[in-house]
Design a protein around this nucleic acid. Structure first.
Lengths: 138, 138
DNA sequence: CCTGTATTGACATTCATTTTCAATAAGACG
DNA sequence: CGTCTTATTGAAAATGAATGTCAATACAGG
């Protein structure tokens, strides 16, 4: 069976589906701990270990994005497969996926300029979205 | 007294100087644990707690850069004051400071485009430096 | 030299993440 | 459908960075 097309690992288990579901429902960055909590709340309990493993597998398969919060905790989010970055509102957490060759090109150029190869990069944009940047709200 | 202007903390202690020294010597990103180890090796032992505290103070005072390694550990480095990013070799850790308006401009543009304001950004470039990218080494 | 106070550091604690390993269940095959 | 192989699960323990605690210590002004 060389034609694996299974979403995560090989077998389809209740736990894996539950994590996938959760990711689909909360269209937002969440930590493993938070997802675990969420699933428990839904009654769809999954072991914490399994949540970690599933998320790691999904990240490996590029089916979720992982970014590091400032406190060092990893947060995950379902995302489109192609390469992109995130523009996150620091108030409400709203996230916009941003794609564009600008940074990629720049990164490659800077790398070349310094004799570096195989450049990878992390870029995160944090700001205030339109709604959250409106002045005072009674 | 609201006119505090001391570099780090107030007092100048052997420990603080040792940490400063270490940062000057290893012109490279190091974790608190690594610096602690390094100082111990030099015979200039400083408590781990103190290393953390000193680094936190330095970071607060913008005298060192802090970035999150992929494993979530914070690494510190003495740096120039102005805004810049880092190009780090994933093999040897060699670091080059990169400055340039390209990303700044792009970030601002993307933000505006989506109605975001007050955009801040984090950018890190990781690759292989010239020395480390040489083919096979028996 | 003395004293007040910032500072230190050994140790305990917190908390995310990983490892361990025995029990379980998915799915192939007969 | 039953059986068997093996991936998978998960509770508990382990790991490791970072922070809190608090008594002992050293800096610096008087």
């Amino acid at each position: 069976m060389a034609s694996d097309r299974a979403p995560v690992g090989r077998r389809s288990t209740r736990q894996r589906l539950a994590v996938l579901d959760a990711l689909a429902e909360v269209d937002d960055f969440r930590s493993a701990q938070e997802l675990h909590e969420y699933l428990r709340g839904k009654g769809d309990a999954v072991g914490l270990t399994t949540v970690y493993r599933t998320l790691a597998a999904l990240a490996e398969a590029d089916e979720v994005d992982v970014i590091l919060r400032e406190d060092g905790e990893s947060i995950y989010r379902r995302c489109s497969g192609s390469h992109h970055h995130h523009l996150v509102c620091r108030e409400c957490g709203r996230t916009v996926e941003v794609a564009g060759p600008t940074v990629e090109t720049w990164a490659a150029a800077v790398g070349r300029e310094h004799g570096f190869t195989d450049i990878r990069h992390t870029v995160e944009l944090i700001g205030l979205c339109r709604d959250c940047s409106t002045p005072a709200t009674s």
